[in-house]
Every structure is written in structure tokens, then in C-alpha cells.
């Protein structure tokens, strides 16, 4: 895969293709979808992040600049992915933004407990959704300064 060589900026973990497409379109509109990888479940997301399975040729330290993570995922849930990312010292500094339909208080609380960087509930209205996605892409990719990884 070509993507594996390039520096990936956004990892989108989303099982719903329409939501994924909307998300990608919203990013594309703001010219931020170039270095985006979309995976459809938690297991694939973990393979990508930790350079295992299909992504074993990747370097773990060459992680994405931000992970957009849905919570309701097949195989491995979003919360488990978050837990694993934040538990591993190679990946725990990668910003993780939960982008989900869930508004459950306990999901929000648990996510923050695990060290999530943002928790965003996806609005139904596309304009609002596009605005939110653009803003968080802008912030995490352009405004935020991540630590230098060795």
C-alpha cells in the first residue's frame, strides 16, 4: 500500500460507510483528506496503529497525527481501541477524538477516564457536522503541537 509509506495524518475508524463518506467529504472540503486512512472496525484500527497483521510493514512510531474514533464498532469496540492506544507508551500521545452518535453520559465519562482528547457527538445536520469535523481537523492538525516522538 502506498499509504503505508506516506505519513498518515488522520486515521478514521468508522464502520458506517455513509458516515465515513460524509466525514471524508467534510474534511476534503477543507483540504484535509489527503493523508486519511479509513478502517472499518476496531481490530483493523489496532492492526494499523500497532503495525500488525495487514499493516505489519508500518512503523508504529510513525503514527497518525489524530485518530477519529467511533465507539460502536464491530469486532473490537471503540472504547477498547482507545484504552489500548492510551495504555501503550508508543501511542498514548496520539490525540484521539471520539466522533460518535452516542450522547450517553457514561460513555463520555469513561472516555475521559481513559484519556480521550475530545468527545464529539455527531450532529444530524450536515452543515453542523461538516463544521465540527473541519474545526477539529484544523485544530489537531494545524494548531496543536504534538510532542516529538523518538
Amino acid at each position: 500500500m502506498d499509504d503505508s509509506v506516506k505519513e498518515v495524518e488522520i486515521l478514521l475508524v468508522e464502520d458506517n460507510p455513509t458516515d465515513a463518506e460524509l466525514c471524508m467529504r467534510a474534511l476534503k472540503r477543507n483540504k484535509m483528506a489527503n493523508q486519511l486512512v479509513w478502517v472499518k472496525d476496531g481490530a483493523e484500527a489496532l492492526d494499523f496503529i500497532f503495525a500488525t497483521g495487514a499493516y505489519s510493514s508500518r512503523n508504529v512510531c510513525n503514527g497518525p497525527k489524530v485518530i477519529l474514533l467511533d465507539l460502536q464498532l464491530p469486532k473490537v469496540g471503540g472504547m477498547e481501541v482507545l484504552r489500548r492506544v492510551k495504555a501503550d507508551e508508543r501511542t498514548h500521545s496520539i490525540p484521539v477524538v471520539i466522533l460518535t452518535s452516542s450522547k450517553e453520559d457514561r460513555d463520555i465519562a469513561e472516555s475521559y477516564e481513559l484519556g480521550v482528547n475530545s468527545y464529539i457527538s455527531k450532529p444530524v445536520e450536515f452543515d453542523a457536522f461538516a463544521k465540527v469535523v473541519a474545526e477539529l481537523g484544523m485544530y489537531w492538525l494545524l494548531v496543536n503541537r504534538p510532542p516529538i516522538l523518538k
Binding site: 455527531k122 450532529p123 444530524v124 445536520e125 457536522f129
Partner: peptide
Amino acid sequence: SHSMRIPLRALDGFSKI
């Protein structure tokens, strides 16, 4: 209610697109 949000978002989103 929760499940309805995804198709609704798609409906609105793709109409907009």
C-alpha cells in the same frame, strides 16, 4: 432514536452534497 440519527445525517448530508 439513536439508530435513526445515522440515516438522517446521511439524508441531510447527501442532499447537501
